[in-house]
Design a binder for these strands. Structure first.
Lengths: 152, 152
DNA sequence: ATTGAGAGTTGTATAACGCAACCTTGACGG
DNA sequence: CCGTCAAGGTTGCGTTATACAACTCTCAAT
């Protein structure tokens, strides 16, 4: 009963986590789908985001993004207006209500997370957050490299 | 420029990770969808799993599981036979080829993971794997509790 | 002026999913 | 025994998210 390879352990956790995320998606993002939430977050975070940026960021088709935006505009969570400087693009902005919804979802997620971590010693939380951030960063980098540098 | 709350950092990483997972799903699971992969893994791991168990484990409808199994049987990755002891249930087994496919996917995932972690000091990997496992465990417990104990 | 590329929309097909209706089997109580 | 009922599984059907392709519109470069 020697200790298992840490990489295998991490791999296993990723699978479990994905399974869980799938199962609790509705719960986590409330009235929004994951993609809708991501779109809203992206627009909120970046000054003057365009639809094409969203498609690139999430690996989605233009049409999908267009329709998602349309839906969010219809629900008055997002505002779409022609960009005065580049008439072929459009400026996206999160409405006040959109920000409210976003805040509510974030709050709910954060609360759930805090509950899960309730019993943890603060220094473990700190350590985990640091390592987790590094991990996701490296994962991001690796996958991004895989596209731009097709030497598989 | 004080340090951000670790919980917020973790939250942010979860979102980023989910985004990435969505984007690289095809790459990660190869010829299988995530659900198909999960089904195969589940059957492989548990002696004599039934379709209903799968539905419960992944929060999917019976019909969805049934069709997924049908597809996997059609591709000869899974074998479905009447259970001799409970005629209304059926016994599921991963075929030799199914095991081969599973191994190949796992290998690929593991390699990608190892690449991402290439520059890490071993003790950090070790620490991260431990904390990550604890984290997913607690997340699991919290979400599970949320269903069985509806005091929301 | 012409051409070409990029941003966005819309039509269409597909795949995954949930819900509901259904069939079969076995357990349990008259 | 026999009827009722719950559980496992399948199938029909509608919904939704998605990709792909064809299109329009605008701008920039020659």
């Amino acid at each position: 009963m020697d200790a298992p390879d840490p990489i295998d352990v991490i791999h296993d956790q990723i699978i479990r986590f994905s399974r869980n995320a799938r199962m609790w998606q509705h719960e986590m993002y409330g009235e929004l789908s994951f993609v809708a939430y991501a779109v809203l977050t992206f627009v909120a975070a970046s000054e003057c985001a365009h639809a094409a940026d969203l498609a690139a960021a999430y690996g989605l088709d233009k049409s999908t993004v267009s329709r998602q935006i349309g839906e969010l505009v219809g629900r008055e969570l997002l505002e779409r207006s022609p960009d005065p400087r580049h008439a072929r693009m459009q400026r996206l902005e999160v409405t006040t209500q959109g920000k409210r919804v976003l805040r509510a979802i974030r709050r709910r997620q954060r609360r759930g997370l805090a509950e899960s971590l309730a019993g943890w010693p603060p220094e473990d939380i700190e350590t985990f957050s640091t390592l987790f951030a590094r991990f996701v960063y490296h994962l991001d980098a690796a996958t991004h490299e895989a596209t731009t540098n097709p030497t598989h």
